[in-house]
């Protein structure tokens, strides 16, 4: 199977004052693949996501997205157009659902642009014209199919903020999927999940990749998730990319091991100290 590139990140650099949070990072994420971005805390993973989704006005570098909808240079687009036109959706490390909307509404609001167009920018919606009712029906169908899949149908009228934590995480992924993205960016989707929920999440992500044929970018610390489902892993450390390869390549990469575990201790002890220790039987 040929891999078609979906997102090409070229020489991405992001500075905050004197701090270089992301330093000249280049990688490619492919369509129909799960690309994981890993690295120790503060490595700049979330900053990469924020650059992709238009949170910062002026990242340096090029973010070229070539999906089914054409080619977009994300670094030149406004936040909402990245979601609306280019088709990039994301979730957050700390969940950001609309907590005082119902579970169902969270999924409907994600289909805002389809409905807005169908409602003739509200006029037809107010009058209840047929075109809008059909579009609304389709939006509801999509939302309900996701609720079925996540097992949340019974809670569809709950306020989203009252759902259990694990369900909120999955609902956030479903909401991102309801925007019909070509690239889905997930920021630590397994954080705070128990082993059973984490296994469910792995299933959900591989299914999403295979059934919807989209690319997934994944930031994750849970190595069972990362190693289990990623097709391709990027490793960041202090803002720079230190490795790029398949899970098995990355796992045995010395630079990665160094970043995660630190340098091996090779300090030479002075001879008298070593001798004392030897006599006491400590070594």
């Amino acid at each position: 199977m040929t891999r078609s590139p979906l997102l090409a990140v070229e020489h991405l650099t992001m500075r905050f004052g004197g701090l270089v949070a992301v330093d000249d990072v280049s990688f490619t994420a492919y369509d129909r693949e799960i690309t994981a971005i890993i690295g120790p805390n503060g490595a700049g993973k979330t900053t990469v996501f924020n650059c992709l989704t238009g949170f910062y006005p002026t990242p340096v570098g090029r973010l070229r997205l070539t999906g089914g909808r054409g080619e977009f240079l994300l670094e030149r687009m406004d936040g909402f157009r990245i979601a609306q036109k280019a088709g990039v959706a994301r979730t957050f490390q700390n969940i950001r659902l609309f907590p005082r909307m119902t579970v169902l509404e969270n999924l409907i609001v994600a289909q805002h642009n389809v409905l807005m167009r169908a409602s003739g920018y509200t006029a037809a919606g107010l009058l209840g014209l047929r075109r809008y009712r059909v579009a609304e029906h389709e939006a509801l169908e999509l939302a309900r199919s996701w609720l079925d899949r996540l097992g949340l149908t019974a809670q569809s009228d709950w306020e989203a903020g009252n759902l259990p934590y694990g369900s909120q995480r999955r609902l956030e992924i479903a909401r991102a999927m309801c925007t019909k993205p070509v690239l889905l960016c997930l920021d630590e989707p397994a954080a705070g999940l128990n082993p059973r929920e984490s296994a469910e999440l792995r299933g959900l992500l591989t299914e999403t990749r295979d059934q919807h044929g989209i690319g997934i970018l994944l930031i994750e610390h849970d190595m069972s998730v990362v190693m289990g489902i990623s097709d391709h892993i990027i490793v960041l450390d202090y803002g720079s990319m230190i490795a790029d390869g398949t899970p098995s390549e990355v796992r045995s990469d010395p630079a990665v091991i160094r970043a995660y575990l630190g340098e091996e201790e090779t300090e030479q002890l002075p001879p008298e100290v070593a001798g004392d220790l030897h006599q006491e039987g400590r070594i």
């Binding site: 936040g79 909402f80 990245i82 959706a89 950001r96 609309f98 907590p99 991102a176 925007t179």
Partner: peptide
């Protein structure tokens, strides 16, 4: 409820 998130779903 959340302006930033609204933009991210395309509003």
């Amino acid at each position: 409820q959340d302006m930033g998130m609204a933009a991210l779903v395309g509003v």
